[in-house]
Simulated scan of single mutants.
Amino acid sequence: MAGYFAIFLVLLTLACGLIWLLDKFVLAPKRQQQLVMAQSAAGGQLSLEASETVLKEPQLIETAKSIFPVIALITIFRSFIYEPFQIPSGSMMPTLLVGDFILVEKFSYDVKDPVWRKTLYSNNTPQRGDVAVFKYPEQPTVDYIKRVIGLPGDRVIYRNKQLYIEKACTAAEQTDCGKLEAVAITLKNEGEFFQELYPQRRYTEQLADVAHDILQTPAKREHMEFFFKQNDTAIDEFIVPADHYFVLGDNRDNSRDGRFWGFVPADNMVGKAVFIWMSFEFNDDPNSWIPGWVPTGIRFERLGAIH
């Protein structure tokens, strides 16, 4: 089921629409009848001010009719075309930073109704390398954002901070499938980012046709004791079930992702993150008089397409 705001938006749209219809076909004709009766009682000479008083819409109806087109357009746009999201954590650094505001393309995947999330139109499926927003499997009212790593049937291994993928052989994937291969990474720098007090290494990872940057923290060990345990596999091995996807955060040592809770059902997919339309920076100095939630600047250089 959708989040509370989506349900509220749909209910508000329906309520305003029903009030508009009730007024158009029931209440407005009654006001016209009352005007005719008032004019007849006044001998056909009813003042303009009195006529406007008889025809005046109640405040509720006037408000509902004025906001209905706007609310309807917002609901349609947000439910089926694009939805804005704010990045609340650093799990997708360096691709996405805290304070980034992004647009998620809803029609990139199956088009679903905004309340019950039942598929209305089957469109494209998530692809390896997509930055995808989905309903968190352990709490479906919460939206998560991660990168799609494993497709249905893939075998994925994350061992010693190195990612390996054995692509499933399907009708669409006949080449480079059926063999386990390390995903290529190239070191860019070290010390640009930190996790706690530990310097992080920034790599460019080549995932299928998608080149993107990831972060690793060499000083942080992998907490494999908390990894999701799948039957008949090693602790760091994941075989993606049918109609599911395996996802990871780009900040590999600071992300609660599929390694810890398993797989994302296809029905949980919301859309593909495609664009950063605003990016605020915040003050992280604990001694500053400025609250941490108050923006201190705009990162214009971050605006643009997401890779």
Rank of each mutant, 00 (worst) to 15 (best):
M1Q: 10
F5P: 01
F5N: 07
L9R: 03
V10H: 08
L11Q: 03
L12F: 08
D23M: 07
F25M: 13
F25K: 14
V26R: 14
K30T: 13
M37Q: 14
A42K: 11
S51P: 06
S51N: 11
E52N: 13
T53Q: 15
K56G: 06
E57H: 11
Q59M: 08
K65A: 04
I67W: 07
R78D: 06
Y82I: 12
E83C: 07
E83G: 04
G90R: 00
G90W: 00
D100L: 02
Y109E: 00
K112R: 15
V115F: 02
Y121K: 08
D130T: 01
D130E: 03
Q139H: 10
T141A: 09
Y144L: 02
I145G: 01
K146F: 05
K146Q: 05
R147D: 00
R155E: 09
R159Q: 12
E166T: 08
K167R: 12
T170H: 05
E173H: 09
D176Q: 10
E196W: 10
R202Y: 06
Q206I: 13
Q206G: 05
L207G: 03
D209F: 06
A211P: 05
H212M: 02
A219L: 14
A219K: 14
K220W: 01
F226W: 11
D232C: 09
I239G: 03
H244N: 12
H244L: 04
Y245H: 02
F246S: 00
R252V: 00
R252W: 00
D253C: 06
R256T: 13
W261Y: 09
G262P: 02
P265L: 04
P265M: 04
N268A: 12
G271D: 01
F275N: 02
W277E: 06
M278W: 11
S279I: 07
E281S: 13
P291E: 11
G292L: 12
V294H: 05
R299K: 13
F300S: 08
E301P: 01
H307D: 06
